Simulated assay, not measured.
Amino acid sequence: MVNRVTLTGHLGADPDVKDLSAGVVANCRLASTDYCKDRTTGNMKEATEWHRLVLFGRHAEIARDFW
């Protein structure tokens, strides 16, 4: 079984990239925002959720090279 998630958002800061003996690891935070209408008032509400990401191997190298 494979679980897959696609997150779209904005990085909170530059990734923290570390070169370890086992390979490259990058840590970063991603903010995704959801907009919905409040049922009682009819006003648009905004909810931001922060995600902690850990990238390994080639993905971490891409984060190091392009951010």
Score class of each variant (00 low, 15 high):
1 M>K: 14
1 M>P: 05
6 T>D: 13
8 T>Q: 10
9 G>K: 00
10 H>M: 10
11 L>W: 04
11 L>Q: 10
13 A>I: 06
14 D>Y: 07
14 D>S: 15
14 D>Q: 07
14 D>N: 07
16 D>R: 11
17 V>F: 11
18 K>S: 14
19 D>S: 11
21 S>C: 12
23 G>Q: 08
23 G>K: 10
25 V>N: 15
25 V>K: 15
26 A>W: 00
26 A>E: 01
26 A>S: 04
26 A>I: 00
27 N>M: 10
28 C>H: 04
29 R>I: 03
30 L>Q: 06
30 L>P: 01
31 A>M: 09
32 S>M: 15
33 T>A: 14
33 T>N: 14
34 D>E: 09
34 D>G: 04
35 Y>H: 09
35 Y>L: 01
36 C>N: 14
36 C>D: 08
37 K>W: 07
37 K>T: 12
38 D>N: 02
40 T>M: 01
41 T>G: 02
42 G>E: 02
43 N>G: 08
43 N>C: 01
44 M>W: 01
45 K>F: 02
45 K>N: 02
45 K>D: 00
45 K>M: 13
48 T>V: 08
48 T>C: 03
49 E>Q: 01
49 E>L: 02
50 W>F: 08
50 W>R: 14
50 W>K: 07
52 R>E: 03
52 R>Q: 07
53 L>T: 04
53 L>D: 01
56 F>W: 04
57 G>H: 02
58 R>N: 15
59 H>A: 13
59 H>M: 10
62 I>K: 15
65 D>P: 12
65 D>R: 07
66 F>Q: 08
66 F>C: 09
67 W>V: 07
